[in-house]
Design a protein around this nucleic acid. Structure first.
Lengths: 223, 223
DNA sequence: TAAAAAATATGAGATATCTCCTATTTTTGA
DNA sequence: TCAAAAATAGGAGATATCTCATATTTTTTA
């Protein structure tokens, strides 16, 4: 992890304005941090001292359960907060956050800014919007998980993560995300290949029947 | 549904202060509404014209999926908002809200108060807290659903809804909540009886081994 | 208050998903 | 750069969960 200093920090902030986020100056104690792929931005169970706001990159939220299973709860993208739960709540089980790509974020020390942030309408309105989207998304994912079999959710996952018609996520990550065993995941993926939806190409999979996958994925959405 | 008028409204508001919620007067266009058990406070897919705040009672959030399955996403309790998503977002799929007990709430017409609410720090801070709890709860439920079999989730549900050692939820509601078929639900419930955790008594079930159920439910929690 | 609808109950067989196992290939770290 | 760790791959059998079917009881409604 690198903390931008002096000129580098200044230049970065000129190119990536955060003026719309707060109505008071935060530069004094604010850091700009860069994490590399697979770095842990926050470790599970360790309360973070900073409120982060992601300017660049992508990350994953993980939680480990008592039965040993690991769940990939969600992805974090640009213009989203990390650590906002700890800002708002004294008691909170902190989830692990791992960078998926190079990730640059600003980091505000909570003990300096907590009170001021919670009085800042600009910040609160932004955060409220962010949280409402997050709550809605989690509710949607929850009810989809309740109501649909793996087939539909896997199709959705493939389409969401595919890049130019090629699916290349790690199977291990997909299993954590879908909450299924590696064995069964391979089984269903092979079925998709047998049905002609996908075609295996080395370690990646080409999407051959977008429409079939899309029909499965569309079932999840509410009209 | 009954709308409290004149003296009744006034008296109710004196006993149930809402002064802590807003920093500007809302009484003029505000209604106080009372719903009976099984009334629909909001119908699925119909955008509500009001922001509700529950003062008394309990309700359920439902969503209907394209495959015909109905999911009971969550319960709404006292001191929670209804319709806040529609306040914040122009495009939003509205879920159905059904009263579970007699439910009294205040109803603010959005088109009168929307702008003012979104500038009110007091309201925003309250709403932010509410949404953060909601997002956290949904994330927890989502990851539990990913990671644990029915047995654990059913134990949790029984303990959460039991009243003085007696479980008496409708099986149909439990199935919607747990996202499983009626047939399988009965199967697992019968197993709990056979193991001695529960004892069937007419249409209700007595909790005979709290510790066994609690051990199953505790697995869901993060320490 | 009788007919219709909803909820409870259970059997039987099909399908989805898991656990355990073993082997090979790829990536990581001392 | 080589040994260890992680990821990929797939077989076999067990368990969880679903679908369909049918019957009875309770609740709702015209």
């Amino acid at each position: 992890m690198e903390i931008y200093q002096g000129k580098k920090k200044q230049l970065y902030l000129e190119k990536n304005s955060i003026a719309h986020l707060f109505s008071f100056p935060v530069e004094e104690f604010m850091e700009v941090r860069e994490y590399q792929r697979d770095d842990w931005i926050i470790q599970e169970g360790m309360r973070p001292a900073f409120l982060f706001y992601v300017l660049e990159g992508k990350a994953k939220i993980y939680i480990t359960h008592q039965n040993g299973k690991v769940s990939l709860i969600n992805f974090i993208n640009e213009n989203e907060y990390i650590g906002e739960m700890e800002l708002l709540h004294d008691v909170y089980y902190t989830k692990g956050i791992q960078a998926l790509t190079k990730t640059v974020c600003i980091a505000l020390p909570m003990h300096y800014y907590r009170t001021k942030l919670l009085e800042d309408t600009k910040f609160l309105r932004e955060l409220t919007r962010f949280l409402s989207v997050k709550a809605t998304l989690m509710a949607a994912k929850y009810s989809q998980l309740l109501a649909f079999p793996l087939e539909n959710r896997l199709a959705d996952f493939i389409l969401q993560t595919a890049d130019e018609g090629v699916y290349k996520e790690k199977h291990v990550v997909a299993c954590d995300y879908l909450g299924i065993s590696y064995r069964h995941f391979m089984h269903v993926l092979t079925q998709f290949c047998n049905k002609g939806y996908l075609q295996k190409e080395g370690r990646t999979y080409l999407i051959k029947q977008f429409n079939s996958l899309d029909a499965l994925a569309e079932m999840l959405k509410n009209k």
